[in-house]
Design a protein around this nucleic acid. Structure first.
Lengths: 151, 151
DNA sequence: CAGCTAGGGTTCGGATTCCGAACCTAGGGG
DNA sequence: CCCCTAGGTTCGGAATCCGAACCCTAGCTG
């Protein structure tokens, strides 16, 4: 991808990059997701943490539920309440957030450094994201990858 | 992150996830990026490939240039033209796109399969994205990671 | 050298979407 | 009974987005 490449023509609607990109590349969805990964589960908590309007929050949560990224489950507190929990499909978006973070760490760090630390629960090591070749294991950049249209 | 976690309170504006998330989580930006990685460089080509309105495309390209993700360079065709090229900062977003694609392949594949193939230029192997521990090398999921607020 | 063309934009009115604030509702507490 | 709380819904105004039309510059055409 990229170097010395004539623009590849691809059927947009069927592309597995653009489908998720269209879903996540919408105001609030990535931030909502981040918040969910930070452990937020209740409507009010999302609202106060993100400073989003209630009506839009309702919409975004509903779409995530519809997409199967969050599930809305009732539970008993002092009375029946609802919480939004990441499904397996939702949890599987973790690498996307980690890739964003890695980029943010390198290119958008505020002077004081990142505001939280992520580390391996078992050994305490830092979290890292890598693009690599499934066959030879080499780490890859955009320049090492070739695109072949299939249809 | 996630399992058995009480919601972590984090200074939003300084978070290295939410900063890029706010930038990329805006209509068209992720799709524009994908298009750039597919080799598109010229205004007209972006416009026809993405079906975005010209005024919004102008805005998005300008913001990417301002952010240093694309650079606008003049070149001579039959006469002076401009093209938008990914900078190093832009190229470094590759893992984000690859993470999206991996997720899309698993959870949003159209019946006919993905519309293009990505493979290592040298050995032909498939491209993969992994979240791993920088210390012990284990592959990590959201459940293996602990969050610690720093400020 | 008048006119045409192509790339890369800008401008504009109407349609969407977003926002903040107010309102609704069901169950529990005083 | 009346109020409180979590989780929404409704509403009018403000900000964005859209498509279509227009503009500007350089080179080619005759």
């Amino acid at each position: 991808m990229v170097e010395g490449m004539s623009p590849v023509k691809v059927t947009d609607e069927l592309c597995t990059v653009s489908l998720p990109a269209a879903l996540l590349g919408e105001r609030w969805t990535l931030l909502l997701l981040r918040q969910a990964f930070l452990g937020t589960r209740r409507f009010e908590d999302f609202q106060s943490a993100m400073d989003i309007s209630r009506s839009v929050l309702t919409e975004r949560l509903a779409k995530f539920v519809e997409e199967g990224i969050l599930s809305r489950v009732a539970y008993k507190d002092v009375r029946t309440r609802y919480e939004y929990r990441l499904t397996e499909k939702g949890l599987d978006l973790y690498p996307v957030l980690m890739a964003l973070r890695k980029w943010g760490d390198r290119w958008m760090t505020p002077e004081e450094g990142p505001s939280f630390d992520l580390h391996h629960r078992d050994c305490g090591g830092q979290v890292d994201v890598k693009v690599e070749c499934a066959a030879c294991g080499d780490e890859l950049t955009a320049r090492d990858v070739r695109v072949t249209p299939l249809r």
